[in-house]
Amino acid sequence: MRIMIIGGGNVGFYLSKTLIASKHKIMIIEENPTHCERLVSNLDSKWVEVFLGDGTEVNCLRDAGIHHADVLIAVTGYDQNNLVACQLAKDYFGVKKTIARVKNPKNIRVFEKLGVDSVISSTESIANVINQELEWNDVNKLIREHSSSLRLREVQVRQAPWLIHHPLKDLGIPKGIIIIAILRRAQAIIPSGETILQEEDKIILWGEEQLISDFLHILSAN
C-alpha cells in the first residue's frame, strides 16, 4: 500500500519505521527541517520519501503525490491540523481511507462526525488500561473485606510463553492458587486440568496474595 503520513515527529517517525517493515511505501510531510533531516538519515529511502512542507495545504499535498496514496494518516501534535489534513485528503483528493491521531480524547467524536474514518487517541488507550486496572482494584477491595489475604489477578499468557502447549495439570501451578477462568477472544472458559492455554489468552488467578506474587515472579523469570 502507499501511505501518506502528515507529521514526522516521534509518532510519525516510529510509525513509518513500523510500516516499512510490512513493506508499505511511505510519503511523509513534515514542516520542521530538523525533523525532516532525522527522517531522511534514519529511514530507508527505498521505502520512504520525505517532503518539507505544510501537510494541510493543497499544493503541498499535491506535490508530495497524494494522488498515489491509498491511505492518509495525520499524526501531527495539533488536532486541528490533523482534521484539516484528513478532510482535504478525503474531500478534495478522494483518498479512500483517512486516519487521525487526536490529543484531546473528546475530539474522537468530533472527528468521526466530521468524516475522518478512524480516530486514535493515545490518552484514551492509556486511560482504558488504567480503568481496567481500577476495576480489578474494586473487586479486590470487596474480597479484602471478607478475607485479608486472598486476591484475584489477571495474567497475559503471552508474557510467559512456556505456559502454552501443556495441559494445566502439568504446569506445576502451586497449591493455594487456582485458575478460575481463561479469557479467550470474547469468551470466558472455565478450565479443567486438561485445558491447554493459547498465546492470546488471559488467565484469572485466585489465591493467597503472597503465593500469587511468588508465582508471577517465577513466570516472569522463566
Binding site: 494541510t56 495539533y78 488536532d79 486541528q80 491540523n81 482534521l83 484539516v84 468530533v110 462526525k113 466530521l114
Partner: peptide, 16 residues
Amino acid sequence: AEDNMNIMISQIAKHL
C-alpha cells in the same frame, strides 16, 4: 490566528 483552528471551530459550531 490559525486557519486550521478556525476551520475546526466553525465545523464544530455548524455541524455538531
